[in-house]
Nucleic acid binder design. Structure first.
Length: 168
DNA sequence: TAGGCCATCTGGTCCT
DNA sequence: AGGACCAGATGGCCTA
C-alpha cells in the first residue's frame, strides 16, 4: 500500500524546502564571510610574517565554521527526511482506518487514538469469534504465517497464530 | 485574536 | 566520528 514514489517524495521535499526557504536563508546569512584580502603583501612584509599566521588562523576558523555549518545543514536535511517518513507513516495509518473518509482532516494524535480504538475493536471481534467457531479460523496457515505450539496447546488459536507478513 | 497543529531547526544523547 | 533519535523552541497557517 505504497502512497508514493521516489519522485513524489522528491516533490514533497521540494514543497517543504520552498516553504522553509526563508528560514534557510536566515541561517545562511549567519555564516561568516571569509575575506581573503585581510592583509596586503606590504603588511605581511613589514611584520615578518606574523600577519600571515594570523591570516591563516582566521582562515582556518572560517573553514571550521563553514564545515560545522555544512554538517548542521546535512543533519537538518536528515531530520527533515526522518520526520517526512514519520508523517507518511501517519498518513498510511490514517488511510488504513475504516470509516474515516480519505479527505478527513485528522491530527496525528487523533490518528493514534482512532487506531488504538480500532485495534481494541478488532481484538474484541476476535474474542467473540473464538467462542462461535473455535476451529474454523480463516487464517491460511502456511508460511509466512507461523503456527506456534502443539495442537493440544491451541486452546486459544488467535493467540497462537503469528502473522509474519502478507501471503503472496 | 487565541489556540491547535505542523514543519523545521537545533543541541543533546545514544548507538554503531 | 557520524548518524539516528529525541525533545524543546520557533514561526507559519488555519479555524472558531
Amino acid at each position: 500500500m505504497s502512497t508514493g514514489s521516489a519522485a513524489s517524495d522528491a516533490e514533497d521535499y521540494e514543497t517543504c524546502h520552498t516553504r522553509t526557504a526563508t528560514a534557510l536563508a536566515r541561517n545562511a546569512r549567519k555564516i561568516a564571510c571569509y575575506n581573503p584580502n585581510l592583509y596586503s603583501d606590504e603588511e605581511l612584509e613589514n611584520d615578518g610574517g606574523e600577519g600571515r599566521i594570523k591570516h591563516d588562523r582566521k582562515a582556518s576558523r572560517a573553514h571550521q565554521k563553514e564545515a560545522r555549518q555544512s554538517q548542521r545543514n546535512a543533519a537538518n536535511a536528515r531530520e527533515r527526511a526522518r520526520m517526512r517518513v514519520l508523517s507518511k507513516a501517519f498518513s498510511r495509518l490514517k488511510t488504513s482506518l475504516p470509516w474515516v473518509p480519505a479527505d478527513t482532516k485528522l491530527s496525528k494524535l487523533d490518528t493514534l487514538r482512532l487506531a488504538s480504538s480500532y485495534i481494541s475493536h478488532l481484538r474484541q471481534l476476535l474474542q467473540d469469534d473464538r467462542f462461535e467457531s473455535r476451529f474454523a479460523h480463516p487464517v491460511n496457515l502456511t508460511w509466512p504465517f507461523l503456527m506456534t505450539g502443539r495442537s493440544e496447546d491451541n486452546q486459544d488459536i488467535s493467540s497462537n497464530v503469528r502473522l509474519c507478513g502478507a501471503t503472496a
